[in-house]
Amino acid sequence: MLGVGIIKGLAETGRNFIGSYFDRDRLVTVEYPEQRVPLRENFRQFPFLVHDGQDAAIGLRCVACQICEKECPPQCIYIEKSKDKKPDHLGKPQFFPAVFNIDISVCMSCQICVEVCPFDAIKMDQDFELSTADRFGGLLLGKTQLARPNTHFQRIHPREAAEIDTRRADERQKAEAKAKADAEAKAKAAAAAAAGTAAATTTAAVDAAKPVGARPAPTTVPGPASARALPGAGAGTVPAAPSEPGGQV
């Protein structure tokens, strides 16, 4: 009969009208600035650079390998490699980005930079309230704006961060073990070699390669180069006793 369908429809909207006052399932809206929906762990917005420790200048994981720059589909990353090197968390000397820019007005949040990064250095941030009145400069983020401590990463992506932290700790342990083994081998070699003449140079090398901050397992590198690579790192250097057996010779 004519009109039945419309009356059914009216009943349905009426039910939804009343339901919106009682049923959480029906009124799904939240009043945004005051109320917020908790973000999903996987949620991604724009990339950021992870650094260990508190100082971004020292702890940046990025080694300026430029893979992300190459793979980025909209080409929104710009990297300039440093001239010199600084040790990474394993103590290996690595380049670092002198300039690292991401134009987030171009970035399409695809996460490919994160996937291709072999150093876990770039990750996706969850900060989405990025509106700015400055259309060009405000959306071009530099190295200092992009750097976030690992604790931030642990907070926004706890599952992934835990996984990465364990892996990095393992790597570090392995590297330490290897360094120890190497050092022992070297000590033997040094002992076998004629003592005395080499002592001065070895001491100089150890002084220059003192461990940075909490980083263990230093490796021997040519002294002067290493000293230049870390101009700002001198303050954080722990004046530890030379740990290398070679020094005691």
């Binding site: 999903r40 762990e41 996987n42 949620f43 991604r44 399409m108 949040s109 695809c110 996460q111 490919i112 996937e115 996706m124 599952r159």
Partner: peptide, 26 residues
């Protein structure tokens, strides 16, 4: 919401990869 918690984005998911999917379901 399901897409967001699986892939990280609500609409631009970018989830599949050649030979599988990018991540497992959380």
């Amino acid at each position: 919401d399901l897409f967001e918690s699986l892939t990280g984005a609500r609409m631009m998911c970018n989830y599949m990869r050649f030979g599988g999917c990018r991540t497992d379901a959380p």
